[in-house]
């Protein structure tokens, strides 16, 4: 192995270890309930990556990612069950449509202050939801669409939980690699610059509106592909999965995990997938209440600096220990 390859491996060691850990799970985990949860985590991770790029890098918020997830799912379902398209082709076309819609919404709103995009994306989410319910001849209304085929490669069926885990997480890891690359590239640096100060970024030659629209379109495509994956795995979709509530939960995940890093998106995704599963045993209704409180708490306690929940707790503990140390006078040495 050449020296360059070794350097490359070492620099990205975290990512490769993570990838190997995730991809080997089906070798020892056989329970289909847990495998399903992991598979959903994979597609949620794809959605969160898009949100994380948009929110963490560019400092723009979309409250309508569920609309793009819905376009992905319904695009895949309609094209395969009605028109007999190949599932992969259907997925690609749906992602293209999502990106185009994101572009149409992004061009006027991303020039304005942050809340215009937030409100406009809420509006898009609502419009898409209404269309899914109302365009009965196309979407079958509230009854939803069933009989969606599984993904396959040639004659290899990818519908089983283990095969699906591999393909879904494979794509999710690919997207994570794209996100990592994007954030370290010229695009990522431009976005970080414009997040701190748009006039400053523009004076250095960054086309801020264009960059923001670009990343918004990428986020929409990620969400759309994730939606298609879900549809191919569950074989059934209905409009209720694509509401504003789901959009906000996705944002919550990314914020719990911490903005600006791919790993934040992962931990946040894990939190919003696992927490409801646990709370369901107590009282499922309180999940969103807790998410809402967390959103406020993270913003207020971190004064809008948007770090992860983990870091928030750690700092809090360290501060408390520090304060105790000073009041005791002696204080214990730091571990």
């Amino acid at each position: 192995m050449s020296a360059d390859a070794l350097v490359y491996l070492r620099r990205h060691a975290g990512f490769f270890v993570f990838a190997v850990l995730i991809m080997t799970i089906p070798a020892y985990l056989h329970d289909s309930y847990y495998l399903s949860i992991l598979a959903f985590m994979g597609t949620r991770f794809m959605m969160a990556l898009g949100v994380s790029l948009l929110l963490g890098l560019a400092g723009q918020i979309s409250l309508g990612q569920a609309a793009f997830v819905g376009i992905g799912a319904y695009g895949a379902a309609i094209l395969t069950t009605r028109l007999g398209f190949n599932p992969w082709l259907a997925m690609g076309l749906a992602a293209l449509l999502s990106a185009v819609i994101a572009g149409l919404v992004g061009v006027p709103t991303l020039k304005l202050r942050g809340y215009y995009l937030a409100m406009a994306t809420l509006g898009v989410n609502e419009i898409i939801y209404i269309l899914l319910v109302q365009l009965k001849s196309l979407t079958n209304g509230t009854d939803g669409i069933s009989g969606i085929p599984s993904l396959s490669i040639g004659s290899l069926d990818l519908g089983g939980p283990k095969a699906y885990h591999l393909i879904a997480w494979g794509v999710a890891l690919l997207m994570a690699a794209i996100a990592l690359n994007l954030s370290r590239s010229r695009v990522g640096r431009s976005l970080r610059a414009l997040r701190s100060s748009e006039p400053a970024a523009e004076s250095l030659g960054v086309d801020t509106s264009f960059r923001k629209v670009q990343v918004f379109m990428v986020a929409a495509a990620f969400a759309s592909i994730a939606g298609s994956f879900d549809a191919y795995y569950v074989h059934y979709i209905s409009p209720d999965g694509y509401t504003i509530t789901f959009s906000i939960i996705l944002v919550t995940g990314v914020i719990i995990g911490g903005l600006g890093t791919v790993w934040g998106a992962f931990w946040g995704t894990a939190a919003v997938v696992v927490l409801p599963e646990i709370l369901k045993r107590v009282n499922g209704d309180i999940t969103n209440l807790i998410f809402g409180i967390l959103l406020i708490a993270i913003m207020v306690l971190w004064q809008g600096r948007t770090r992860s929940l983990g870091r928030l707790v750690r700092t809090f503990l360290v501060n408390r220990r520090g304060r105790q140390g000073t009041t005791d006078g002696a204080g214990e040495p730091e571990a």
């Binding site: 942050g114 937030a118 809008g304 948007t306």
Partner: peptide, 8 residues
């Protein structure tokens, strides 16, 4: 951004 997220 923080204001949007907190009020959401």
């Amino acid at each position: 951004l923080a204001q949007i997220i907190a009020t959401v």
